[in-house]
Design a binder for these strands. Sequence first.
DNA 1: ATGGTAGCCTCGCTA
Length: 267
Amino acid sequence: MTSGASVKIATWNVNSVKARLDTVRTWLSETAPDVACFQEIKCTDETFPTEAFESLGYNALVHGQKSYNGVAILSKRPPEHVVNGLPEGDGDDHARYIEALVPGENGGLVRVASIYAPNGNPPGTDRFAYKLAWLERLNRHIRRLLTLEEPLVLCGDYNVIPSPDDCHNPKAWEGDALFQPETRAAFRRICNLGLTDAFRACHAEPHRYTFWDYQAGAWVKDHGIRIDHILLSSQAADRLIRASIERRVRGWEKPSDHVPVLCELAI
DNA sequence: ATGGTAGCCTCGCTA
């Protein structure tokens, strides 16, 4: 038997890469993903700790912003065809999207995106309108990418609770931008382009979370939500081997409020 | 009904 080549891809909202540097480096060393997508790095391109990741064998692609937002992609193999920001970005200064083409073994290629969708709270404000408009821009961009008919892995914090099973108490989230009917519908329209939720494809059980608020003892009470998702094109879904949520990381010292989500593809 | 925490690099904003 020959062992098939596989690529391990992760997504993680780190809530400040500088505040989380030790935690992130520890997790990367333990888990050794081939590609890691970060959100909320909360720093500029210039202040991103590139060397701290290069010393672990990663190339770093950064689309940063001072204090807020910011996304990055780490890849063991040198990426190509990098795209910073979504199209139609006139007047939008939020750093929420980066994409690259990453080589696998044996000449295979995977296109990977690191996505940080707007939070949008509270509903009924221009912040909520911005969230919905941003998700529609993302939808249009994904439609263009899907015409390439290649393995595509859309990683990120979508700030969407897809179903009541993705939170502890749906009533508590009724008034929240992450669980509004319009928000869920916008996310469904993206999924219905033909994408596969990697975690859900591997795990049917409800109440598996990726985020627990720092406040009100949410972690201790397991009052979490599942808002970090890996969406796969059909060409990527064909190759899905496994997916998981790195729940244990939330219990570490000085944790992010989000934990990593992983998938492994036969590429 | 409110406040509870964390990070930014400030005493307020975002999540």
